[in-house]
Amino acid sequence: MPKLSYLKALNRALGDEMARDASVCVFGEDVRVAVSNVTAGLAKRFGPQRVLDTPISEQAFTSFATGAALVGLRLLVEFQIPSLLFLAFEQIANQAHKFSLMSGGQARVPVTYLLPGSGSREAWAGQHSDHPYGLFAHVGVKTVVPAVPSDAYGLLLSALRDDDPVVVFAPAGALGVREDVDLAALGPVPLGRGRVHRAGTDVTVVAVGHLVQEALAVAGELAGRVSVEVFDPRTLHPLDRAGLAASLRRTGRLVVLDDSNRSCGFAAEVLATAAEGPRLRAAPRRVTRPEGAVLPFAPALDRACQPGRAGLLAAIEEVTGVLREGGGT
């Protein structure tokens, strides 16, 4: 089977959907030359009327997309930098997202906002390294963070076909992931369904985006000692609460690995959801960026703020302490 890279999967999904549906257009900065690579070849294939380079006016072009969507187009809006979402938060969270409810169901705003290279790219410093997916999940915007190429393809396809605004985060740390896939079998992946990448019985690790690979690596290291289930929510809103509950029923223990700030972050929501469910066998743990962190420039400082394998390993050992001490199942 051919290897499909994560970036190529996004490019392929967008190209396939533009070929299938002539109403899909792309807005973004430098999208014709495809600085992010996601839109590579699309301007040539579909023409400049469907792939539009915008001036550096994120607020205006985000709401242009809303207006175009209200009269029948479907837009993909690419942002090169995740922090641009702060700039366009009004246009997404307070405008595009609210039209359906406020109009009593008259309006549809099918716009997908794509963030290729979200999170830290190392040494891009404070204003280029955020991972604000929790903000969008909090306000109710559909929020997607694919971890692997097949999901990047399938979730982007579903986002483009959805009649609501959807934010798709493609973490910088996941862009290099490659996967053996049967290209003919690629298809839409429904929003709101999680995925168990590795089954286990001792602890559920809920990992988001690029951290799924870290969780799988740690699960591999621990094989034979601790049986780790790696649960990838894939969509943060709507969250697959049923899938999460099923995993927790199997393992009874929980660690969340989330590349965003700790306080009021996505991991906090997962812990709260678990706390409202059946009692866990051990207090859950979350491995996140520090509370209220701003990522510093120097690579060692940047890395020091990011959740990773060491923190995950320590958290798993903590919640499965009984196992480690030989008194377990």
């Binding site: 409810l101 109009s103 169901g105 709507p238 999460l244 959801t273 059946p278 009692r279």
Partner: peptide, 29 residues
Amino acid sequence: LDHLYATPLVPVPVPVPVEPVPLHATEVG
């Protein structure tokens, strides 16, 4: 919350079922 979304959420969020697990029940070796 009618019309919150034009494409309804799939799957419809399911409340976590209340299935009490006895405290430390499985740790007994």
